[in-house]
């Protein structure tokens, strides 16, 4: 995982060729298979784009979508979950209902719909920030449900009652006792959500609804897909990048949940 974050920060500088560089087109090094020419270790595609550079160039964009959308989801989700869990009565019931309705929405279809509308309104696809925003705005219900469940559980624990009995106010109880204790499942879910968001972004790009001017793994996958019988490497390597990145985030979720547990801390 650290590896991908490293790539995100420094990958841009490591990439031997600039973003969507068509230079090779004029040097006759298109359609290079991987591992044949060390100038292009993972080969090039039919318009001469270097696959290795393109993966590196795509890393920050993919992580931006994955992490950015998750941050938005967590912010909305924890807020909604906290109100639905700590508050009571009418507002909490409404919020819970709203969350459940949101959960049933087919997010991917809605995103594609948005994409179509935007393609019609604005020429070209819609930019990464917009994809991020939409993914974030549609991704919060799971977080909200987990947050609410956790608050309902923790609120009844004896140490919360003890804190109240010994003079702690609502704010201290919420921020000292409840929030820290609900953090570890939220963080674990968040890492899974990052992985999910990256996957969704790949799907959107792959289906051709992404931003054709921004390098992402999904875009490269899609470009390679047309020539998969002759130029398998163009699709394979960004695909592997997706797999390792998603796997990395999932493993990070596991690692974090262990690291956040003081019982396992030494």
């Amino acid at each position: 995982m650290g590896f991908f974050v490293f790539l995100m920060v420094f990958g841009f500088f490591l990439a031997p060729y600039p973003v969507r560089d068509f230079g090779c087109l004029y040097q006759g090094c298109t359609n290079l298979p991987p591992f044949t020419d060390w100038a292009h270790p993972l080969g090039t595609e039919n318009s001469g784009i270097d696959v290795y550079s393109e993966i590196l160039n795509g890393t920050p964009n993919d992580l931006f979508v994955g992490i950015g959308a998750t941050v938005i989801s967590v912010a909305i989700g924890v807020l909604v979950g906290a109100i639905a869990g700590y508050g009571r009565g009418f507002s909490s019931a409404i919020l819970l209902g709203f969350t459940q309705v949101f959960l049933t929405l087919p997010v991917l279809i809605i995103i594609l719909l948005f994409a179509r509308v935007f393609v019609l309104l604005v020429a070209g696809g819609f930019g990464l920030p917009l994809i991020t925003l939409i993914l974030g705005v549609f991704g919060w219900p799971t977080i909200a449900l987990v947050a609410r469940g956790e608050i309902l559980r923790i609120r009844e624990l004896e140490f919360v009652q003890a804190a109240r009995a010994l003079g702690a106010g609502n704010r201290r109880i919420l921020f000292r006792h409840i929030v820290p204790n609900m953090l570890s499942p939220i963080i674990v879910i968040s890492t899974l959500l990052i992985a999910g968001n990256i996957l969704t972004e790949v799907i959107i790009s792959f289906l051709g609804f992404g931003d054709p001017n921004t390098s992402t793994w999904g875009l490269l996958l899609q470009e390679g897909f047309a020539y998969i019988r002759t130029e398998w490497w163009v699709s394979l390597f960004p695909g592997l990048a997706v797999v390792f990145c998603v796997l990395g985030f999932n493993l990070m979720g596991d690692g974090l949940s262990d690291a956040l547990n003081p019982r396992l801390r030494e």
Partner: peptide, 27 residues
């Protein structure tokens, strides 16, 4: 309630049944 808060723990202290759950595990 704000006045009661000053009094809880100050005038009246409480010990609960289960020490395993009456202490916050994270601190």
């Amino acid at each position: 309630d704000s006045d009661m808060r000053k009094l809880r723990g100050r005038k009246i202290g409480v010990v609960f049944q289960d020490p395993n759950s009456s202490l916050n595990p994270l601190f």
